[in-house]
């Protein structure tokens, strides 16, 4: 668990981060959004002390980060940046091994860990371990960047626009991969982005920052239904609101008893996808199939639309 308490950064007379307080639960994803210059990256970089706070403090599992030597602190925190910053003179395997090597792991343990991570990221070790970063595609570089950050099994992962350099198709896949791996490893993640779509897709909670201040820190649905300030409302997009809200619930939530004809839709799909399917095929309802393929009810346009409104 990370507790950020009244964290502030000032340069001369300008305040870049102003008294931010927030708490990120163990194993959850907190996404920080805001316009550029809002202080998101500075906030993130104060967590691993790449920037020293002017005042306030950060506790990780109750321990003040200032009580740990900074390099030691960073060994325990994964860090991924836009562009990844892979070492161009080192192979993929050497890149991933960076922190384990700094920690003095033995050769065997490092090799095993590298192979495990390459497998996890669907990069064939035989093919990729000895490649240099410039020989990889953008998507592969991104995966190596995250694998490198996870190498020493950090309990906390900081990500600064980690998908910013990817094209939309690869980005969606990379986001899904991250979610899957995060669910599997239970890593706590703080992620900075300016892409609202990404924030709603990944965040268990979303922190909205503007002009150095934290305006609201809440679960996605609350951000949509009860925006704390006009800026938050503008940022989440008034026109997009119902659809974002729909994307936060699954078909399972809206399944009602009754028959329907047509190709069944999976219960795990989100309601936005379901609505889209219904509109496209011109039906009022579709059957819902569970993970085993058995039909468990139906989902209807009316039933879906109820989820796209704040008062339910």
């Amino acid at each position: 668990m990370i507790e950020i308490e009244r964290l502030t950064k000032r340069y001369g007379n300008s305040t870049v981060v102003d008294g931010v307080t927030m708490r990120v639960e163990e194993g959850s994803i907190a996404v920080v959004v805001g316009t550029s210059g809002a202080g998101k990256s500075t906030l993130l970089r104060m967590i691993n002390r790449l920037i020293e706070p002017t005042s306030g403090r950060v506790l990780i599992d109750g321990q003040d980060t200032m009580s740990v030597p900074e390099d030691e602190l960073r060994h325990r925190i994964g860090y991924v940046i836009q562009g990844y910053g892979l070492f161009p003179h080192r192979t993929v395997a050497e890149n991933i091994a960076t922190v384990p090597r700094l920690l003095g792991w033995n050769r065997k343990r490092i090799a095993d860990r590298v192979e495990e991570l390459l497998d996890l990221y669907q990069l064939d070790p035989a093919e990729f371990a000895n490649k240099y970063p410039h020989e990889l595609s953008g998507g592969q570089q991104q995966r190596v960047g995250v694998a490198r950050a996870l190498a020493a099994r950090p309990a906390l992962l900081l990500m600064d626009e980690p998908f910013g350099a990817l094209d939309p198709v690869i980005r969606a896949k990379a986001q899904d991969d991250l979610l899957a791996i995060q669910r599997r490893l239970g890593t706590t993640i703080v992620l900075v982005t300016h892409d609202m779509e990404e924030a709603f897709h990944l965040g268990d909670r979303i922190a909205v920052m503007d002009q150095a201040r934290l305006l609201q820190y809440a679960p996605p649905a609350e951000l949509l239904t009860r925006p704390a300030e006009a800026f938050v409302e503008r940022l989440v997009g008034s026109a997009e609101r119902p659809f974002r809200l729909l994307s936060l619930s699954t078909v399972r939530d809206a399944t009602e008893p009754g028959p329907a004809s047509g190709e069944p839709i999976e219960a795990s799909a989100n309601l936005r996808e379901a609505l889209s399917r219904l509109v496209w095929c011109g039906r009022d309802a579709l059957p819902v199939a569970g993970a085993d393929g058995a039909v468990m009810g139906r989902v209807s346009i009316d039933g879906i639309l109820r989820f796209g409104r704040p008062s339910r």
Binding site: R74, H89, A149
Partner: peptide
């Protein structure tokens, strides 16, 4: 040397000395 690479090295907890010898000079 790309500031991104240096940022990543620092972010992973490489000491200034290691950054010099293992990242900056080789690059």
């Amino acid at each position: 040397v790309s500031p991104l690479t240096l940022e990543a090295a620092k972010g992973m907890g490489m000491s200034p000395r290691r950054r010099l010898f293992e990242v900056e000079l080789p690059l």
